[in-house]
């Protein structure tokens, strides 16, 4: 299986924005920050709240339910690095954004 899946066209997501996607049955949150694209699971590892409804500050997203904060680059929970939200590789090819759903 080829793990790279097409997500969106590069032009569909503005700098600093985020977009929840359903990719191969996975709830994915695609984010654009400082020009880069980042993909994490859209389910908070605490109580599965949708991170897409949370606020972003730089590379940090805050879960809307209980304010747990994650680094979108690594998926690490800032208050305990042992806990992570799954983070996926991304690549841009010819204006199209792809996500590697294999971790």
């Amino acid at each position: 299986m080829v793990p790279w899946f097409f997500a969106i066209n590069e032009s569909e997501l503005d700098e600093g924005d985020k977009k929840p996607l359903l990719m191969e049955g996975n709830k994915i949150l695609l984010l654009r920050q400082e020009g880069g694209f980042y993909a994490i699971s859209n389910k908070c590892p605490h109580m599965e709240c949708p991170l897409s409804k949370g606020d972003m500050e730089g590379y940090v997203i805050k879960c809307p339910c209980h304010d747990w904060r994650f680094d979108i680059r690594s998926g690490e929970f800032l208050d305990a690095k042992e806990i992570t939200v799954p983070a996926y590789e991304t690549k841009v090819d010819d204006g199209k954004v792809y996500v590697n759903l294999e971790r």
Binding site: P45, H46, M47, A80, I83
Partner: peptide, 10 residues
């Protein structure tokens, strides 16, 4: 179920 996943890595 949910909390087990959080506390285990800790």
């Amino acid at each position: 179920t949910m909390f087990q996943r959080v506390i285990d890595p800790l």
